[in-house]
Amino acid sequence: MIINHPLLGPRDAQEFTYFGDASLINRPDWQAEDAAELFYEYLHVRDNPAGEHRELWYHEHGDRSWLVVTRNTLTHEISKVEIARDVALTRRHGQ
């Protein structure tokens, strides 16, 4: 697979390590009333879709940036690559 890095251009997926579903950006509030339940869901439960999947990749052998890659789990086709920091900031400002 080739991941089209927003800053560095097309890079071999071998340069990256995979972390998991992009929802892992949204860490729950540890002070919430139902924090135990929220962390159980956050840590262990997954949508695991067959099709489009937003996921976190870390450019370990590169610029060490975290990326949010939108990839089809049935075909391995990558349709979108974003810097994870931008995704997280957009989400925060969106609230």
Binding site: M1, D12, A13, Q14, Y18, G20, D21, N48, A50, H53, E55, R71, T73, L74, T75, H76
Partner: peptide, 11 residues
């Protein structure tokens, strides 16, 4: 990485 493709990659 997550996959339902029943095929892998070269690395």
């Amino acid at each position: 990485y997550n996959s339902y493709a029943q095929r892998g990659n070269l690395p």
